[in-house]
């Protein structure tokens, strides 16, 4: 074969990509996609506990959209999501860049420490934060008391509780996302920085023109992963505040959980899930669009 012929032909066997993706899909089709489609199907059903399901069209969607609690739950979730992301993203970028500047040995140690919180079981997290947040014997309130502030009702005040949850979540995942970003930073060749330094670029300029653009794929991943996690906030809230006080921390997934497993209305729960999924898809699309359009600028 001549060189030109080889170039015009495909460089690899046509089956290659399918062979690569096949093992993943062997798992994904039944356990991932299959469940998603079933869930989607359930949202169109009226399926009382233990009885055969009946087709209900969009009835369940109407029920959910009519329910003021669903609006409240979505609103709370969005509110906490925005607060969470606005604090998390700059913080974990900052920590990742900082890690990169440390000696590798120090960086490794710091990484393990900041990463440790996510390995802690949620029940234990709840206990520790309960001990820290407690109005009487909480460490934080006792420190605040020394400077004459408080006691601050971290979890029992409707305005403060969402922020106390956000703080806990940031503590829990900051190191995790920072380490993922840091791993991404490791793939950026040092030469780029050396070149930028030779050009006289300052720390911010190096971040702006070298780190950020080259880190974009990983940043996008962190943004998508953390925002999906924020949309699906559930366990922390359930353990610490149970959605209260006065429903100030009632989240969308709590609503879904309640509909499915407390009111036994699986159709309603699935319909709410589909609506939440739509919100997640839209916001993820917007987020990736934002990061991409930035690329062109």
């Amino acid at each position: 074969m001549s060189a030109t012929a080889r170039r015009s032909a495909r460089k690899y066997p046509a089956s290659a990509p399918y062979l690569f993706i096949a093992p993943f899909f062997v798992l994904f089709v039944p356990f991932g996609a299959g469940s998603v489609l079933l869930a989607l199907g359930i949202s169109f059903l009226d399926w009382p506990l233990g009885q055969p399901p009946e087709f209900a069209g969009f009835d369940k969607f109407a029920t959910v959209l009519d329910d003021p609690l669903f609006g409240k739950a979505m609103g709370n979730t969005l509110y906490m999501l925005v607060g969470f992301l606005l604090a998390l993203l700059p913080l974990c970028l900052f920590v990742a860049v900082l890690l990169k500047q440390l000696r590798r040995r120090t960086a490794n140690l710091v990484q393990v420490v900041i990463f440790a919180p996510i390995t802690m079981s949620l029940i234990a997290v709840a206990l520790v934060f309960d001990l820290l947040y407690n109005e009487r014997v909480g460490f934080v309130n006792n420190v605040l008391d020394l400077v004459g502030v408080g006691p601050v009702p971290f979890l029992t005040d409707a305005d403060l509780a969402p922020w106390s949850i956000i703080a806990l979540r940031i503590w829990r995942v900051l190191g995790y996302y920072a380490v993922i970003l840091y791993a991404g930073l490791q793939s950026i060749p040092d030469e780029y920085y050396e070149a930028a330094q030779l050009d006289g670029a300052g720390a911010w300029q190096r971040f702006r023109h070298v780190t950020f653009p080259l880190l974009k794929p990983v940043t996008l991943f962190v943004l998508v992963a953390s925002s999906i996690a924020a949309w699906e906030l559930f366990a922390e809230v359930q353990v610490l505040t149970d959605g209260g006080p006065a429903r100030s921390t009632l989240t969308a997934v709590m609503y879904i959980f309640g509909a499915s497993f407390e009111q036994f209305d699986l159709g309603k729960g699935a319909a709410a899930s589909v609506l939440l999924a739509a919100a997640i898809i839209v916001s993820t699309a917007v987020a990736s669009r934002l990061l991409r359009s930035d690329d062109r600028a």
Binding site: L37, L40, G41, L45, F55
Partner: peptide, 11 residues
């Protein structure tokens, strides 16, 4: 399309 298919199979 798949949603419709699933409703049918689920029923």
């Amino acid at each position: 399309v798949t949603a419709v298919a699933v409703v049918l199979t689920a029923c």
